[in-house]
Design a protein around this nucleic acid. Structure first.
Length: 469
RNA sequence: GCUCCCUUCGUCUAGUGGCCUAGGACACCAGCCUUUCACGUUGGGUACACGGGUUCGAAUCCCGUAGGGAGCGCCA
């Protein structure tokens, strides 16, 4: 039997980081087993579902590099099929019509809460004939759940979890307006789509018990469940916007690499010994649902930065350049940078990339540190200080050396400047720092002789000339 | 309130009765490297929630306590 997983977000917001990891695990497992991953948009809540959210989710999936098999399935479009199953269950007696009004249900919940009981439907229409209801009254269709015994969820991550059936009430399958509930729709869709493994957040664990009852009422095979722990914020509370529950598009704007984010996310509640870095191929071959832990992990930006930094300096330069250019429209200052990136600027960027990527943890940092390549920057405070404190004079002194260097290459310039330093009795740093300040406007940059070479003789001398004297 | 789940350094985690005076990674501190910043490198501190058992021996098994999380809609 080939494995079929699915990622089934509801389009009520962007694809957040927790959803991203759920998608990752589904994707990894499908690829590992040679199976398929399906994408289903759970848009049965018409009020809260939006087209913008659907686009954001699909955009996020693509950016993260996740591919799915077949067309995207829209759950709402299958409402007819869901209703058909509900009516079939009605006919078989595994479901019944419930005429309770919203007010009655509200009163029921209040009474239960007041008495310290869990709020549940009391089953008042379970054994009552529909003829008792006023003619033409609207009704919901409820599952006639077993009231004795227990429902067992055999979960690959959580283990065997037992729910006494008395704690599970008769859930609504079809609303009184005839539309299906999530609970029904998920089961019918997963069954119809031949999903074999349901990998989702542990917040769905009790749903798994209720859904198991629906599978059983229809005589369908129950899929393998794997309920993965949630991701928490740095304070241990549910992830909120304060600490990282941003849409994945926000991570793109912050300059993270998709490969790094995949790697970081994979290591949350999943591990393989002491290994920290995994290529996609390694992740796929090493991943197992059994190796997922049960406890929630906290989202740690510092570690993400570190992982991203590792990818920044180890990925092929061409990949970094590609990711950088792709991220440009989304990063602060990116579009402006893009406008200045003509042929020659791009050539300088390519030449400087090895030195730049080494120092950048994110593409945003890369962008910031590359700006001197495409424009002459205002001096920052530290750079100004270096020039003011004798820097200008020393620059004036090396000008001739630079102007007359036989070759304007890093090794040749290094040799020439070092010779100059020696004969003039100056420490190399006393020349290098003013050069850096004049050339880049900053006090940190790639090695200064590389900077000179990348900028070229003409531009370098112009920038130095403007800051010497 | 009820049901379920969780608990190893600040964080992510290794660990499935002896290999653990608990390992790795991030972060932190100190040193080295060095034209800056990074990278790299050397060293350091910090953890088995608590209390009882079981056992020759427990981070690992059992019980209890505490703390944390999730779920309890005609939302998904």
């Amino acid at each position: 039997m080939t494995v079929v997983t699915r990622f089934a977000p509801s389009p009520t917001g962007f694809l957040h980081i927790g959803g991203g990891r759920t998608a990752l695990f589904n994707w990894l497992y499908a690829r590992k087993t040679g199976g398929k991953m399906l994408l289903r948009i759970e848009d049965t809540d018409r009020q809260r579902s939006t087209e913008a959210a659907i686009e954001a989710i699909i955009d996020g999936m693509r950016w993260l590099g996740f591919t799915w098999d077949g067309e995207v399935v829209y759950q709402f479009a299958r409402a007819g099929r869901h209703a058909e199953v509900a009516h079939d269950m009605l006919a078989k007696g595994t479901a019944y019509k419930c005429f309770a009004t919203a007010e009655e249900l509200e009163a029921m919940r209040e009474a239960a809460t007041a008495e310290g009981r869990p709020p549940r439907y009391d089953g008042r229409w379970r054994d009552r004939p529909a003829s008792d209801a006023p003619p033409g009254a609207p009704y919901a269709v409820r599952l006639k759940a077993r009231q004795d015994g227990e429902t067992i969820v055999e979960d690959t991550v959580q283990g065997r979890v037992v729910f006494p059936n008395k704690d599970l009430d008769d859930l609504v399958l079809l609303r009184s307006d005839g539309t299906p509930t999530y609970m029904l729709a998920v089961v019918v869709d997963d069954h119809d789509m031949a999903v074999t493994h349901v990998v989702r957040g542990v917040d769905h664990l009790t749903n798994a018990a209720r859904q198991t009852q629906i599978y059983e009422a229809n005589g369908w095979d129950v899929p393998v469940f794997a309920h993965i722990p949630l991701i928490h914020g740095s304070d241990g509370a549910k992830l909120s916007k304060r600490h990282g529950a941003l849409g994945v598009d926000a991570y793109r704007a912050m300059g993270y690499l998709p490969a790094a984010l995949r790697n970081y996310l994979a290591r949350l509640s999943w591990s393989h010994g002491d290994q920290e870095f995994f290529s996609d191929a390694e992740m796929v071959s090493l991943f197992t649902l059994e190796a997922i832990g049960k406890s929630a992990a906290r989202f740690d930006m510092a570690k993400l930065d570190s992982v991203n930094g590792h990818y920044m300096r180890t990925l092929p330069a061409a990949d970094i350049l590609e990711a950088f250019e792709a991220a440009l429209p989304f990063m602060p200052g990116g579009p402006a940078f893009q406008d200045k990136l003509d042929e020659s600027a791009k050539a300088r960027l390519v030449a400087a990339l090895p030195g730049l990527r080494e120092r950048a943890k994110t593409l945003v940092e890369l962008l910031e540190s590359a700006r001197f390549l495409v424009e002459r920057l205002e001096l920052d405070d530290k750079a100004r200080k270096i020039l003011d404190e004798g820097g200008r004079e020393r620059l004036a002194a090396v000008m001739t050396t630079l102007r007359t260097a036989p070759e304007f290459t890093a090794p040749a310039l290094e040799e020439a400047v070092k010779a100059f330093a020696e004969t003039s009795g100056t420490k190399l740093g006393q020349i290098a720092q003013p050069l850096r300040a004049a050339l880049t406007g900053r006090t940190t940059s790639p090695p200064i002789f590389d900077v000179l070479e990348v900028l070229g003789r003409e531009e370098s001398l112009a920038r130095i000339g403007a800051n010497s004297g």
